[in-house]
Amino acid sequence: MLDDLDLTEYEPVYTRPESFTDTIMRYCPGCTHGLAHRLVAEVLDELGVRERTVCIASVGCSVYTYEYFNCDCVQAAHGRAPAVATGVKRVRPDSVVFTYQGDGDLASIGLAEVVHAAARAENITVIFVNNAVFGMTQGQMAPTTLPGQVTTTTPRGRSREEGGYTLRVCELLSQVEGVAYLARRVLTSPGRVRAAKNALRLAFEAQLEGAGFSLVELLSACPTWWHMTWREAFDWIDQTMTRYFPPGEFVNWRGCGQAKE
């Protein structure tokens, strides 16, 4: 029995990050929100900034983000997290401020807020989880829904006539001066997870150095509303989603990115 194990004989090699609370997450099986949370928490731990971090939660599947991250949190209205983050950061410039937003929150109702926070070079970090669908409201079309993708509001597949075209947020923001760090990553293999974590660390480092706005887009699985197994969902990300949303580093203030000095 597990209860009979004497744990003192073991050295822990994988523990819960201090930046997590003990709350059990309520995400669906196969969803990668939990993994994205974990990477953010590990980065906050490793940078030693948890105690001065303020998380801005958004509206969508990740609405309870404030219950999971063990730091000060503010719950924002749908789409407004970058504006709330702006207010917090301007009053508390020493705080590390990040928003955690899905594609409906960030790319639909909140597109203006994220673009203008970037244009103002607000010293905040945005974690953008893109799973190409509205999850919490049960599977409607998102701005990032792919052409041809079937959702509950594009029952014949997204087309120019029904739903219009797909928005690519990183490509859009890569045109905005004021962005210090901008990358898109996937979470479908251990190597890709490590690359995603590295991008998250760079994004927070950009903020700590006062370099400006940083955003990491994470392509995320939604087996529930894609009506797939987790394996099918991961394959769909690798084979279909990444063709429309190529992973990469779009802006890096340290000069290693494709654009910007």
Partner: peptide, 26 residues
């Protein structure tokens, strides 16, 4: 003090929300 020109009245209000959450009276 700090003046921020928001992108909309909507955003201005949520900047206030963040600023008030951080302790000031915005």
């Amino acid at each position: 003090g700090v003046y921020v020109q928001a992108e909309s009245e909507v955003a201005a209000t949520y900047m206030m929300l963040g600023a008030a959450a951080a302790g000031t009276i915005p």
